[in-house]
Amino acid sequence: MRAEAAATGRGATSPPPSAAPPRRLLRNLTAKIAAIPMVLTALVVFLGGTVWTVVYSFTSSRMLPRAEFVGLEQYDRLWSTRRWVISIENLAIYGLCSLVFSLVIGFVLAALLDQKIRYENAFRTILLYPFALSFIVTGLVWQWILDPEFGLQSIIRGLGFENFTFDPLYNPDIAIFGILIAGLWQGTGLIMILMLAGLRGIDGEIWKASRVDGIPAWKTYLFIIVPMMRPVFITALVLITSGIVKLYDLVVAQTGGGPGIATEVPAKYVYDYMFGGQNLGQGFAASTMMLLAVAIVVIPWAMLEFGGKRRG
């Protein structure tokens, strides 16, 4: 089978001059055959799995999938559940803040490192280091740091500031920001490195030119360098957004969704109802909503980014 395919492949790459013109489908056949497993995986596992999940979210499946269609019942219940609504709010807060702060802090750190400072390697390693830790470890570390009995609060109180209070993980109103701090600590290092690579890619002539024209450094950064780094920003954006949607393990390790349900996130709702609650239908409905949210963000962006290029 394989020998046969290879033979056809060779035939297609160097057709005898008298043969009919090669069909487009057969051109570069070896590469196409090599891509088949990946194409199948993408179609069956990703696309097929997604379609299957969406279809079964309209059923009353409990522990095992069952094709008993109940219309929008699961979605009705989902949106009247307080925990789900709070999960969505949390994800929105976390997502927005994480997007803005990761980009800003990442860029500022990179710009600072780019000033030809001493020990740049050491600083870069220190700042990137948290990224080498898993979310579980990050979550536990920050759970301890933010614990009022042992962590930051007790250290600062020990220094003499008796009234200092900082216990975000124990206050339902701001607990999600405790998670955000840990997420930023873990993730900004990578964004910084990406930005730094982008800054290094900027031609030194541009700096010289802006200096000759007497433009202040911050203006050069904001109006010249940042627009030139657009591809880097887009890569960073994609990395940050994918990190936001899959936020799960950090919450499980750091707060377990608590206090109460103050730091619940959609992914955790999906897991808890699919496996803990033995209600696949409900879990599928929730994951379909997550997919929809991603699609709403990604499709217009992809159309702008890729569709525009083809036309132009």
Partner: peptide, 10 residues
């Protein structure tokens, strides 16, 4: 069942 149990727990 487990579904109802989970909801009461929530």
């Amino acid at each position: 069942d487990s579904d109802t149990r989970t909801r009461i727990e929530d």
